[in-house]
Amino acid sequence: MDVNAQNLSILNTAVSTAFNSAFEGAESQYTRIATVVPSKTAANTYAWLGNSSHIREWLGERVINRLKQHDFTLKNKKFEKTEGIPRDAVDDDQYGAYMPLFAQMGQDAKEFPDLLTFPLLKNGFTELCYDGQPFFDTDHPVGTKTVTSVSNMQAGSGDPWFLLCTKRHIKPLIWQNRRDFKLVMKTNPETSDHVFMTDDLLWGVDGRCNAGLGLWQLAFGSKAELNGTNFSAARTAMMKLKNDAGSPLGVIPDLLVVGPDNVTKAEVLLEAMNKANGESNTNYKKVELMVCPWLA
């Protein structure tokens, strides 16, 4: 196939079709655990994180809530992936062999938010969140007049698992999107220095975004063994959480997230109606199970 404007248009259509079909067909899970926030600048500041109060009876003047101020900023980053087709492959009508590369590029673009978001859970035992403490920690400061230490973790040495509350408007994590991933191309040897010098036709995808830690109150991390006792303790601890004013937050966890090594234990915990001794399993379908390969 001659490399001319008409044939390049046909080739670009083939590449775009492979990319878009794979993108639309791929699945992603990040929206279940992360608040999606559109970004219009180089970085977003989340001063509202941690500020929570309830509706009250209106007696006298309104009470203006001036809670703790936080300066948690998430900077956008640029990400890209680029693939090329040798011009000789186009000349010899062999470019079809490269279409799986662009289908994979489309799938990668769709799954990338998962790849960036879910590891935040695994790193949450050391990475700091808005209150200056690790996201999963034993002494988050809670309270305005009297400050108490609150835990959202269990210590241990095993593979981590995570209990999350995801049914609220605000989710445990943040997905910040500045520019959607978009396929671009450099294919014309008459206008592209790269094609002229290397004889490679290029297609690439790029975007600007980032992921960050949100409300620790909506997540519980554990490295203890995943069993009924530890699961129940984590669930109870989340439901007992209070805001800075001392009022219950009303958190009810609904999702258990595990990596590959905890799948069997999670299935026994949540999907078996009876325990090994025949006793009824009170944790049966207590929460949903999400298996995440990005936690491997």
Results as ranks from 00 to 15, higher is better:
Leu226Val: 12
Leu226Lys: 03
Gly228Val: 11
Gly228Asp: 14
Thr229Leu: 15
Thr229Phe: 14
Asn230Phe: 08
Asn230Ile: 09
Phe231Pro: 05
Phe231Ile: 10
Ser232Arg: 03
Ser232Trp: 11
Ala233Met: 12
Ala233Phe: 13
Ala234Phe: 08
Ala234Asp: 03
Ala234Trp: 02
Arg235Asn: 06
Arg235Lys: 10
Arg235Ala: 10
Thr236Gly: 06
Thr236Ala: 10
Ala237Arg: 02
Ala237Lys: 02
Met238Trp: 01
Met238Ile: 06
Met238Val: 08
Met238Glu: 00
Met239Thr: 11
Met239His: 02
Met239Tyr: 09
Met239Cys: 13
Met239Lys: 02
Lys240Leu: 13
Lys240Asn: 12
Leu241Ala: 04
Lys242Ala: 09
Lys242Glu: 12
Lys242Cys: 07
Asn243Val: 12
Asp244Tyr: 04
Asp244Met: 03
Asp244Arg: 02
Ala245Tyr: 15
Gly246Trp: 05
Gly246Ser: 02
Ser247Glu: 13
Ser247Ala: 13
Ser247Arg: 09
Ser247Cys: 13
Pro248Phe: 04
Leu249Asn: 01
Gly250Phe: 08
Gly250Trp: 06
Gly250Ser: 00
Val251Tyr: 01
Pro253Phe: 00
Asp254Arg: 02
Asp254Tyr: 03
Val257Gln: 04
Val257Lys: 07
Val257His: 04
Val258His: 02
Gly259Tyr: 05
Gly259Phe: 08
Pro260Ile: 12
Pro260Phe: 11
Asp261His: 15
Asp261Trp: 14
Asn262Asp: 07
Asn262Gly: 07
Val263Thr: 08
Val263Asp: 04
Thr264Glu: 15
Thr264Val: 13
Lys265Ile: 15
Lys265Val: 14
Ala266Trp: 02
Ala266Pro: 02
Glu267Gln: 03
Glu267Ala: 09
Val268Thr: 12
Val268Leu: 07
Val268Gln: 04
Val268Cys: 09
Glu271Leu: 10
Ala272Gly: 03
Lys275Trp: 14
Ala276Thr: 15
Asn277Glu: 08
Asn277Trp: 07
Asn277Tyr: 11
Gly278Lys: 05
